[in-house]
Design a protein around this nucleic acid. Structure first.
Length: 494
RNA sequence: GGUCGGUUGGCCGAGUGGCUAGGCAGUGGUCUGCAAAACCACGUACAGCGGUUCGACUCCGCUACCGACCUCCA
């Protein structure tokens, strides 16, 4: 194996809009924070994209020898419902509808999310903190911001003073927005009159009397603001400065912009060195989203139980499909596209079976090292999984030529080639080895029945030789056959 | 409306200033009693119009179309 330590990984930093060489702040340690799910409903295919993208990154960093602490939060509190004009808490609304405790809803969907992740072979993060479990820390974070002069309290709510912040720092540096544009574009929402400016955002929000999810604070009963949990929990678990913060592109503004503002205001410095954003999953060219009504949940994909799906898809087909597109490109869902991936993956699996049976020779006529270099180059180029996969397909030709006796491979190269597929397909791309699971009980049953059906047909056309041959063969296998008036019976002889 | 991004062959999807991406489908072939599978081989492409260049799909400009964000979402 080439030494992966020699690899120079480049990743695209949204902050600079350039690919940058990845250099951790404190090698060999890497701190990675990713915005996780809001657990008020089942995850759909779009939600799987950040999980899969940063699972790929997590796996590759570990493969390169880094010691990674991967923190992915669970948002179980505090986000607002889209069309609820009152600004009702999303989780709360769902709870009302279903007459459940809010924490019951959250627990239910958290469990289901974890189940989905397990199906997709997504590695568990090192820490999976809940926003509701860090209320105290979030309040402390608000204190820091207020003390530094960038937060102000009004009627039991605390807001972030964007204008003031922007005078000393740059609000909009990540998303490329300018305050002037925001002024003209901010929609009128209830509660705006409390803020100094419409683009100020809540750090702590006063709970209305009917609000169920609220916590005591020095400002009164309330709940944390929309963006606070990530600033708080990333700081708590990864420190005031850490390496990588990831999430979906749609979180760029305002969520991540506000996170930067909060952390910078509270800590007096930039927290994140590299910002990474995955692109969206589209369906008919449009973003897959709950509110757009075009979402297909992962459970539906795995069961095939959705009008837009031709069939059920194995989680690995989904994973491979996502991996066949670069994380910064959109990937458009269609049955044809996933089925194409599914068949391609099948061919890859067949090739690996062939690889396992390959015999080594004295000398090699193939260049395994070059293939390996190409695979690392692809991954080092901002996690280019589609190009990596194309090299794995190219490698199939090598395998098949050796198998056909047209090329030869020595023992060392053969070992390396096996390692290569093992490392890149299984460990890095995270594709699960296919298990040869056949329902043997059912299968033998079906085979016996089919045999007897053939025998019955043979008897009907007076082909007694064939009929007897079948009976004799089955008898020898310990299966006793009894002809009946209109068919047959059989049992396994004891 | 503002900001940003995209437009690649039948479909999906990479990439590059001159050299085959890859997958699926298709076509031809090998194998096979037939078929299937497997394997081998092979097309078709870079939205339009200008410009820069010896040369552009790749750089620049304009136009058209699509999308994301600006408001909860990954």
């Amino acid at each position: 194996m080439a030494d992966p330590g020699n690899s120079e990984l480049y990743i695209y930093n949204t902050l600079t809009r350039k690919k940058e060489k990845f250099e951790p702040l404190n090698p060999p340690y890497v701190g990675l924070y990713v915005c996780g799910p809001t657990v008020y409903g089942d995850a759909h295919l779009g939600h799987s994209r950040p999980s899969l993208t940063f699972d790929l990154l997590f796996r590759y960093l570990k493969h390169l020898g880094y010691k990674v602490r991967y923190v992915r939060n669970i948002t179980d509190v505090g986000h607002m419902e889209s069309n609820a004009d009152e600004g009702e808490d999303k989780i709360l609304k769902k709870a009302r509808l279903a007459k459940l405790e809010p924490m019951e809803v959250v627990q239910y969907y958290t469990n289901r999310f974890r189940h989905n992740m397990w199906s997709l072979n997504v590695l568990e993060p090192s820490i999976e903190p809940l926003a509701s479990g860090h209320i105290i820390e979030q309040q402390e974070f608000v204190d820091l911001i207020v003390k530094s002069g960038y937060g102000y309290e009004v009627n039991g709510s605390v807001y972030f003073d964007v204008d003031k912040y922007n005078r000393n720092f740059n609000y909009g540096k990540l998303s490329g927005r300018v305050i002037e544009d925001l002024i003209s574009n901010t929609r009128e929402l209830e509660g705006q009159e409390e803020k100094k400016n419409p683009y100020d955002f809540a750090l702590w929000k006063k709970a209305s009397p009917e609000h169920l999810m609220h916590w005591p604070s020095r400002w009164g009963e309330g709940f944390p603001g929309w963006h606070l949990e990530c600033s708080t929990m990333s700081t708590k678990y990864l420190g005031e400065e850490f390496d990588i913060h990831g999430g979906g592109m749609d979180l760029l503004f305002p969520h991540h912009e506000c996170e930067i503002a909060q952390s910078t205001a509270a800590l007096g410095k930039e927290s994140v060195k590299y910002w990474m954003h995955n692109n969206l999953v589209t369906i008919n060219g449009q973003k897959m989203g709950k509110s757009l009504g075009n979402a297909i949940s992962l459970f539906e994909f795995f069961s095939g139980d959705h009008p837009l799906l031709d069939k059920a898809y194995h989680p690995m087909a989904i994973r491979f499909f996502i991996m066949q597109a670069h994380y910064r490109s959109t990937v458009d869902f269609s049955n044809d596209a996933i089925q194409a991936s599914e068949k391609g993956l099948q061919r890859l699996f067949e090739g690996i079976k062939t690889l396992d049976k390959l015999k080594s020779s004295e000398h090699s006529t193939v260049d395994v090292e070059a293939l390996e270099r190409k695979c690392y180059d692809a991954m080092n180029d901002d996690l280019n999984s589609p190009v990596l996969i194309s090299h794995l397909f190219d490698g199939l030709k090598i395998i098949n030529f050796i198998n056909a006796g047209q090329d030869f491979i020595n023992e060392k190269d053969l070992k390396n080639l096996k390692n290569l597929y093992h490392d890149f397909l299984y460990n890095i791309l995270g594709i699960d080895k296919p298990e040869e699971k056949i329902d043997t009980e059912n299968l033998s049953d079906r085979i016996i029945r089919k045999f007897l059906q053939v025998r019955k047909e043979a008897k009907q056309r007076k082909d007694f030789a064939t009929a007897d041959l079948i009976r004799e063969t089955l008898n020898q296998l310990g299966i006793e056959i009894k002809d009946t008036k209109d068919g047959f019976e059989w049992k396994i002889k004891t």
